[in-house]
Design a protein around this nucleic acid. Structure first.
Lengths: 347, 347
DNA sequence: AATGTTTACTAAAACGATTGCGTAGAAATA
DNA sequence: TATTTCTACGCAATCGTTTTAGTAAACATT
């Protein structure tokens, strides 16, 4: 049931004009007299006529909408990215269709299929943690669908990418902990297959190496689902807290892992930072009022969204197949709060 | 640039068949011989043919997608609602287009127009705080667009609605504060024009009245933009804290107002709950690890989304104009945490 | 053999908007 | 008056798919 019954044809009938005259009048064509234009416009207004965009899309061969795939919009980083995307897309008359993978590969494939089968003009995607390969995207990319990756990218597809400076984010967070006097710094992170994990981990490792601190591999814990399930982080913490050389600080990646870690440490009566200091990778606007206020690496979510969308729209609008691609890296910023300030426990 | 060039016509040409034969073969019609079907299917596969959904939509008169209008997805309540919406919509093969008003009336009108001009089959909307009237929706409703309101509803349009039990949420929160020994309970809330404000306010007032507590009107502060700007809450708090009969507790509505209130009180060194107790209306998953852990009225966001979508899909699928509408009210749940527990300040 | 039935396909008309081309009638020009 | 030019509009094709209404040819029935 199409609720909007008023078509260009209805107007034509009502005014005893041809369909093409009405269409041209609505487009303010020079071929139509002012009198007729006025007549048509008035009639369209009165009947609340709205051109059927589906018909327009069919005619024009584009849908003026772009698809977004993220893990979950509950993650403030992603909702900030989406705001950035919208700010650019809407300005250019593009609509945005948001889908969530909840870190599942299955859902990612389904969403991508759904989006392309709804005829999007381009795709913005941050890969799911569980995505083992990108064949589903390679095919589309080969067919000419403009794709821009952001946040979690893949090297297997050559296209534009926008990421945070994850390496330096990881380096800075770790160095800050070192500079604050911590030496046994653990790392709880997402699965090792996704790009952000590797990059942040590399930063973490290099900061430690540069400071001459040896860190056992035991200190690095991976959460298979990126912290989707509390148990993943419970396991990691149990493991870390039971090590004979218990860490005195933890560097966590991702919103979910970070906030869940605080929650669990609080529950376990492990004082932050007295017993264990914490620096997270998170964009939550609540970092300031958490208990304790959370030191965190902040990413320019909004800007990432903006940049990615600009690049995507360039691809979409390009008349020629684009072969030169670039990867934009935006800086991260470390906010130091209480959770990483060395305190004497007995103070 | 449509990236998918292969049409049903291409296949027809390649196999020397008619377009209709190909279409029917792809739809496994009984009119087509097995041999031809196999031929067509193989050819479609080989050329990676995918039906153009826009053409299908045009033909079928529906777009299989529903529009959502919320104030902002950064608000966890709304992202939870959206998850609920998606869970139902996707199961039924419907796509979802999310738009944000950021509490602006202008954006609400724009988004609604954009959505309907993108041919949605139905609309799920929570009104913006700044929306003065619903003429833009009345028109569409009159034209037969299926609409379901949730959260912030209007009485001026007769259709399905799904809301939280805001009255009881307000009542319970206030009663809890009273039972905890607080007597001077202020209320910081959204503008008085939106439904949730009125309902929660009524609950707040009744709880006080029922307890025989007189409360001056001064104790009720409205944030014109629903707390979008920090200054709104700063003003409210300044006002409340400078009253000669300073409140000993505050009941706040909405995620934004609640979390900003904590943040500001912390900054002002006003101890929660020792100086001022706090109960908020919020769905943040971080309530537990805030400083202090926040007592809050929790709404069934996911379920609201589910229910609203079920009702919308019923409207969409109905062959007959629906005239009997219902308003579903889902219970809220008060989580008591530290922020509202009476404490002797000098303890 | 004449008629009915089935099989397997095609032609053409939708869906709604856009647009190149054609043209009647008015106006301008020769 | 005859011819050209303009003006203002209509016709018909188009986008890709679906669907209704056919129709030849093969087969079966009487």
């Amino acid at each position: 049931m199409n609720f909007n019954a008023v078509t260009i044809r209805d107007i034509a009938k009502e005014l005893n004009l041809s369909v093409s005259t009405v269409s041209k009048a609505l487009h303010d064509s020079y071929e139509i007299s002012e009198k007729t234009k006025k007549l048509v416009l008035e009639c369209a207004q009165r009947n609340n006529y709205r051109p059927n965009p589906i018909a327009q899309s069919l005619k024009q061969g584009n849908s003026k909408s772009i698809g977004i795939v993220v893990s979950t919009i509950e993650n403030q980083f992603f909702s900030q990215v989406i705001n950035g995307i919208e700010s650019v897309a809407h300005k250019e008359g593009y609509n945005v269709i948001i889908t969530q993978t909840h870190e599942s590969y299955d859902l990612e494939v389904k969403n991508v299929n759904h989006l392309t089968s709804r005829s999007i003009d381009g795709l913005l995607i941050s890969l799911s943690t569980e995505t083992p390969d990108v064949e589903h995207l390679k095919k589309l990319h080969a067919q000419g669908l403009p794709i821009v990756f952001f946040d979690r990218v893949t090297e297997e597809i050559n296209t534009h990418k926008v990421i945070s400076d994850n390496y330096n984010g990881g380096y800075d967070a770790t160095k800050h902990l070192i500079d604050s006097g911590f030496r046994r710094i653990a790392h709880i992170t997402s699965p090792p297959n996704i790009s952000i994990t590797k990059e942040r981990l590399a930063g973490y490792k290099d900061a430690l190496t540069d400071a001459g601190i040896f860190t056992p591999d035991d200190y690095i814990c991976y959460c298979p689902h990126g912290g989707r399930d509390i148990s993943e982080i419970e396991n990691a913490l149990n493991f870390l807290l039971n090590l004979k050389d218990k860490p005195d600080a933890i560097f966590t990646t991702s919103d979910r892992i970070t906030t869940t870690t605080i929650s669990l440490l609080n529950k376990l009566k492990v004082a932050i930072p007295a017993d264990i200091a914490l620096v997270g990778y998170t964009n939550t606007t609540l970092a300031d009022i958490l208990n304790p206020p959370l030191s965190s690496v902040h990413q320019q979510g909004f800007e990432i969204g903006q940049k990615a969308t600009e690049m995507l729209l360039n691809l979409i609008k390009s008349k020629w197949p684009v072969t030169e691609f670039e990867t934009v890296v935006l800086p991260t910023h470390l906010f130091v709060r209480e959770s990483s300030i060395k305190k004497d426990k007995n103070l």
